[in-house]
Every structure is written in structure tokens, then in C-alpha cells.
Simulated assay, not measured.
Amino acid sequence: MNQLTGHIKEIISSGQMSIVTIQLAGQVEMQSLVIDTPASAPYLKEGTPIQVLFKETETIIGTAGHSGLSIENRISGKILEIKKGKLLSRLSINTSCGNLVALISSTSAVLEALTPGMTITAMVKSNEVILAPLA
């Protein structure tokens, strides 16, 4: 599980749902779609220290322009290491907000010609981002 820390920057709610913007290190922002509002979840307030969590399998890797994608959470980084398996490849990625891990198909790793040192963009859909308040 990828874990990053930051603080809540903004909350936009409608009905019983909210989009929460989290400010991470390195001027990186992420968004999380949560089925809660500030009225139903007391931790949802601007400035609250928060942990951002998302699975390695929910991390999408891009190598070139991706302006046509509807994924808000995009983090630029460099591949530190690739462990290729028969089915899956594990990428260790260094970013300005912390190190991440992505599990992608080994076929995709070959098709994208991924190599250590390569600059990539890690992307995560907002509904895959879990928030946990820091104690």
C-alpha cells in the first residue's frame, strides 16, 4: 500500500459525497472522492493532517503526454528499480512527495520500454485514494 502524508487543502461537497484536495510535499496535490462530508466526518476540515493511501495495483504509469485522460491525480517521478516477473512488474518510483510502488503487467512494462532512471507519471483515480486522519 502506498502511503503519503499531507494536509487537507480544500473540500467540495454535494449530497453525501465530497472531493477532498490534499496538499502533499513537493507542491503535489491529490484528490480523493469520499462518501462523507464535513458534517458526517469530523476529520474533514481544511488543514487537517492526513494520510493518503492507495494500492500499488491502482497506480497507472504514463511515459508521454496524457492530456486526454480523466485522471486528476498525476505525480511525476523517476523509476528507481524494476522487478520484472512473468505476469507483473513492480516499479519503485521516486517522486517529490515520497517513494511510490506500482504493480503493472510485465507486458505493459515491455511495451512502454520502461527502464530505471526513466521519468514517468504515476496516476491514480480519485475514487481509489483512501484518506486516514493522522493522530
Rank of each mutant, 00 (worst) to 15 (best):
S106D: 08
K83P: 00
F54T: 11
L134A: 03
S13Y: 04
V20H: 06
Q3V: 15
A132F: 09
M17S: 02
L33S: 00
P49D: 05
V124G: 14
E56S: 14
M17N: 04
E10D: 14
I71E: 04
S13V: 07
I22C: 10
S14D: 07
H7V: 13
N127I: 05
Q16C: 05
N99L: 01
G65W: 02
I60C: 05
S14N: 10
M17K: 10
C97E: 10
I19A: 06
G117K: 04
S13W: 00
I60W: 03
G98F: 13
S18M: 07
V129A: 12
T5H: 11
S89L: 08
L111R: 02
Q16R: 06
I8H: 06
I130H: 11
A41Q: 07
K86L: 15
S67I: 14
G47W: 08
S96E: 15
I93S: 04
E56M: 04
T21Q: 13
E81K: 15
V124H: 11
P116V: 07
A135F: 00
I22Y: 02
G77M: 12
V110D: 12
L114T: 00
S40C: 05
K84H: 11
T59P: 04
S106F: 07
I75P: 06
V110P: 02
I79G: 10
E29V: 00
G15M: 06
I50C: 08
L24E: 09
I120T: 10
T5N: 12
K55G: 02
I120F: 05
A132Q: 11
K84G: 02
L131V: 03
K55F: 07
G77Y: 11
Y43S: 06
P133V: 10
F54Q: 09
L100Q: 10
R90A: 12
M1H: 14
T121L: 10
I130E: 01
L4D: 14
N127Y: 09
G6I: 13
K84C: 06
S14P: 00
Q31A: 05
A109V: 01
S105N: 09
I11D: 09
L88R: 04
T59F: 05
Y43D: 06
L114P: 00
V101F: 03
T57E: 12
E72S: 15
G15I: 04
A39E: 15
M30E: 10
Q16S: 15
M30Y: 06
L24H: 07
N99F: 02
L53G: 12
T37A: 08
E72R: 15
P116T: 09
T59S: 11
V124P: 11
A39Q: 14
S40E: 04
M17A: 01
A135W: 01
K83C: 05
G85R: 11
A109F: 01
V129R: 12
T48V: 03
L53P: 01
L100C: 12
S89C: 06
V34M: 08
T21G: 02
I11A: 03
F54C: 13
V129C: 13
A25I: 08
Q51P: 01
N94K: 15
R74T: 14
S108V: 01
S92C: 11
N94W: 09
D36Q: 13
C97M: 12
L88M: 14
L88D: 12
I22E: 04
G68N: 14
I50R: 08
S92Q: 14
